[in-house]
Each structure stands twice: as structure tokens, then as C-alpha cells.
Amino acid sequence: MSDRRAELESAPWGGRTRRYDLIKEGVVAVVIVAIVVAALSTLFGSPDEKQVTFKEWATAAPADFYATSVQELAGSSGTGGYGAPYNKASDGVNLGPLYLAKLLGVTHPVDTVNDFVITPLTTVSNAAPVADALKTWQASDAKTQSTWATNYDNALTKVNQDQAKVPAGNYGPVPELAAGLLTMAQAGSLDGALLSQGNYFQTDNTKQTLFLGDGSYFNDKSTASNLQGSTWGMMNETGRYPGQAWLWLYSFWYQIPPFNNGDSHPFGANADAWIMVIMGALSLGLIIMPLIPIVNKLPYKIKIHRLVWKNYYQEENL
């Protein structure tokens, strides 16, 4: 683009003008949009599907809750093996040689054994078997605790989470602890205990959310509402409301190979990181679009602008 052209196009307009009331335009716009928005709000309201509580989970799917509690004790849950920023259990995802989460460290420590199970149990008065189980657990060393929990976790998995079918074994107090947590959750006292961790003020729901996500109940509920990332869930909303449609491009990458296969290395298994990079690059591309060759010539080649300025082009014989 010549400097002369840029100069002409940036100079104050010297040609014909028309009356134009910007303030009136703005006021009318606010009024019209407000009316339309108020009408849609009156007709359709807004989405507000009730939050899932631990009480709901433990009541509706006790076996799932029980098994998840055991996984938290054994460290075999999703959170237990997550890695940074919650713990050091794994290296987390990578961008080639870059392990960014690991590099930035454990900034939000989550100890699934104590934060999810033991500490909440100590905040209530428990029935005798649970109180005894807690004492036994707390009196043992970490290695023994881990052996008990892992044994029971494996045994429970083998019988498809059917607690009644678990054969006798070296489980220590783990079954009683899980049962105690289930009772606590069903009574509705786990929700607050998980959040507060023995404190008063607390606004960080990380521990609750991670625990909730480790079980199947929460995930199944989201699948039923079509909210899973693998089915464009990022764009969707509960009920029939419009979702974050503007996230379509972000959501798109999760639907196509190699990103839709979590087992394929290196891209599928690290899809979260790669898609973040792709979207970062594309966002930057949008911001500097006028500098991108070919793309910045499209408006000259595909003359949609002639429709915008059709009156002007007619009047000026362009």
C-alpha cells in the first residue's frame, strides 16, 4: 500500500457529508437492545441448573461415592495422579520438552488423603467403628496406610465397586473410613467441611470440584447434558439455552485427529496444551490480521465492500 494512499485514507474526509446524530443513534440503540433483551428474559429466563452437592451424589450413587473415597485414600483417583499444580504425582502434559505446569510447580497443593477424607472426618463426631478406624489410620505410617488403601481399592475395582462382594483381605481401617465419609456426605456435612477445611472464611472451591470430578456421578450428569469437551460441550449450555457459541473454534480442535484421541502421542495425549497454543496463536493472528499477507488482501479480492458502499459507488460512478 503506497504512502500516498495511506495519507489520503487517513486525512480528514473532504468529500460530501451527511447529517448524522451519534448521540441519538446511541440512545435509540440502548432502548431497542434493552427492549429485546427484556422480552427474551421474560419469555425464556436464563439457565440455572441446580449445583451438584456431595449429599446429592452420596445419596443418588452411594457405590460410586464410596469407591471414589477409597481411590482418594489410595491416591489412584484423577486428582491423586494429576501432577502440578496440585501435587507431584506425575509430570503432567507437555509441549515437546516443555512441561510448563511442572515447571511452575505445586502452587495449589491438594492432598487427596487428608484434604478429601481424613480432615473432613475429624470435623464431626463419628460412630464408634469410624472413630476407631480414624485412630488406627492416624497411628500408622504412610507406607502401611498406602498398602491398605491400594489393596482395598484394587479389590473393590475387581468386583465392580460392589462393596458386598469384596473378599477378606489386608485393608486396615479403609472400609470403615470410606463408610464413615459416605455417612457424612449423605447427612450433608461433607460439603461444608471440604470447603472450609476447618476454617471459617473460604471462597476457594478447588478441593470440592476436584473430588466431585473424580467420581462418575458428576461426569455422567454432564454427559447427559452434552457438556463433555469431546462432544463440543464447551459451546453448550444446560437445558435449551444458547451456550458460549463464540468458543466454537476452541471446541473444534478437540473433535478432530490427532486431538480427539487421548491415547495418541504426542498430540492427542497433550491436546489441552497444544490446543491452548493453537488458540493463542490464532488469537494473536486476529489481533494483527491487517499484517498477515493474503488474508489482508481478501477484502480487495472478494468485494463485499461494494455492498456496504453501494450508494456511494453509484453516486461517484466507481
Partner: peptide, 14 residues
């Protein structure tokens, strides 16, 4: 979390 933003920007922190 995957790109380290989660170390400071915690979406689960209401």
C-alpha cells in the same frame, strides 16, 4: 493447567 496458567489463574477458585 496444561500451559502453566493454572498455577496462578485457578478457575476452580470461586
Amino acid at each position: 493447567n496444561s500451559v502453566g496458567i493454572g498455577s496462578r489463574f485457578t478457575v476452580t477458585n470461586f
